[in-house]
């Protein structure tokens, strides 16, 4: 692979997105503090959103909006579908985060701790 600009951009965008996902999973799997786990979850979210948008990007493309004066720009627009999906996903992600945080609060009220290894009621 020759290192022209295109490849650098490719690697940095995809790489940062994948790195965000992996960091998030790492936090979910290793960190003991429940809030850290929720942070990890939102990082995974962020990485996925970046990945989606990056897939839809086109070099030298424009945003999928027919601004006044540019009504015929359709040939040069980036893919709008991933953007619409991510738009939805961000809002849902907030809802999930909010519910997770409320569960954290609830667990803290119930168990007096936010450390996941001290909450053993999942034992079967």
């Amino acid at each position: 692979m020759d290192f022209d600009f295109q490849n650098i951009v490719t690697i940095s965008v995809y790489g940062s997105a994948i790195a965000l996902i992996l960091i998030g999973i790492y936090a979910v799997l290793i960190k003991k503090h429940l809030i850290k786990i929720v942070i990890g979850m939102s990082l995974v979210d962020a990485g996925l959103h970046l990945l989606f948008v990056a897939i839809g990007y086109i070099n030298n493309g424009t945003a999928p909006i027919f601004s006044p004066g540019y009504e015929d720009a359709a040939t040069n627009m980036v893919d709008p579908v991933p953007q619409a999906l991510v738009l939805t996903a961000i809002v849902i992600g907030f809802a999930v985060t909010a519910v997770a945080l409320s569960l954290v609060i609830r667990l803290y009220k119930h168990h007096g701790t936010v450390r996941i290894d001290e909450i053993k009621s999942l034992k079967w």
Binding site: V53, Y57, G61
Partner: peptide
């Protein structure tokens, strides 16, 4: 997101 031509997503 803004740089990747996704202003809607950026705003959200």
């Amino acid at each position: 997101f803004l740089m990747l031509q996704a202003p809607d997503v950026a705003l959200t």
